[in-house]
Write a protein that binds this DNA or RNA. Structure first.
Lengths: 157, 157
DNA sequence: CGAATGTCAGCACTACTGAAATCG
DNA sequence: CCGATTTCAGTATTGCTGACATTC
């Protein structure tokens, strides 16, 4: 369970002025921080970022081949193998060969998987709330908007 | 040399709605993107992110021990070893044992190092401009402000 | 003695590449 | 034969930890 210290990152001396305007550094530090907090929260219940992403895609788009799932989630197909093996083992998804195209697997979310998705969604909602706490609602929306715009199409996440 | 395609990341299907509100994913994607663009631009001249950061700190704060440099830059002392070895080899910094405390090295930026810093600063300015191009000036300032606030003290970069 | 410093070795995680086997 | 799909193996990078010798 995350404590309040998870959001802090202070010890250390002053940062050089020249670095304060570097977008990649600022983005990198905050991303690493949120990544860690979210990852720890998911890890505490034996989950992983890719598990949530995969379940969310399967819930929204219905049964998918692994290739389709990859392009919806931007998770590499090679990495999906382990993710789906784990989800299947835990009963969150089922995998079956596609009768129409024997190269493909049809991956389907189960009822247990939907319950799991709801659980993980709740955990991440808490994490997001904690991280975004310093911002007003309007500011949060604006942050998402600005990030999506500089991310261009990458930001459609 | 970066092309216009570096900022794009489109191929792929629609992203699940449930993921569009996930801060860590949005931050992670944009951070990875800018990280790659900046890293490629620095790599094209044989430099590295940590080189720029170290030179910037030494230029602003004067000669430092490696431990002090670490706390100014958030680069681990164990990682600084290779960074400084490379910078010294290229003549951008000089290292000498501290007469007052023989455990320490005194690291000093050279004139060549200052020239190099200016060069790298210019490269990164171009990168930042490219990435931030979709935003007005006021929006850029706001993005930095919002990121610094959610990053808390981590954002003092 | 305990603590700080610089160095080296290595681990864990992630993004990513390449190649093989199967099938359309 | 070419291309798509799944799978496995492996690389490169990075943030991070642990251990060590030297010195305060």
């Amino acid at each position: 369970m995350p404590t309040d210290d998870d959001l802090r990152f202070d010890d250390g001396e002053a940062t050089p002025q020249r670095l304060r305007g570097q977008l990649s550094r600022l983005l990198g530090l905050t991303a690493a921080q949120t990544h860690r907090v979210a990852g720890d929260a998911l890890g505490a219940v034996g989950a992983h970022k890719d598990h949530f992403i995969s379940l969310a895609a399967l819930d929204e788009f219905g049964p998918l081949s692994q290739a389709k799932l990859s392009s919806h989630t931007r998770i590499y197909t090679s990495d999906l193998v382990a993710v789906l093996a784990r989800l299947e083992q835990d009963g969150y998804v089922s995998r079956a060969p596609d009768p129409a195209d024997k190269r493909r697997n049809v991956v389907t979310i189960t009822d247990r998987g939907r319950t799991r998705l709801t659980e993980l969604d709740g955990i991440l909602a808490v994490v997001n709330e904690r991280i975004l706490a310093p911002l007003e609602q309007a500011e949060r929306a604006q942050l998402f908007d600005l990030l999506r715009r500089i991310g261009g199409s990458a930001a459609r996440a």
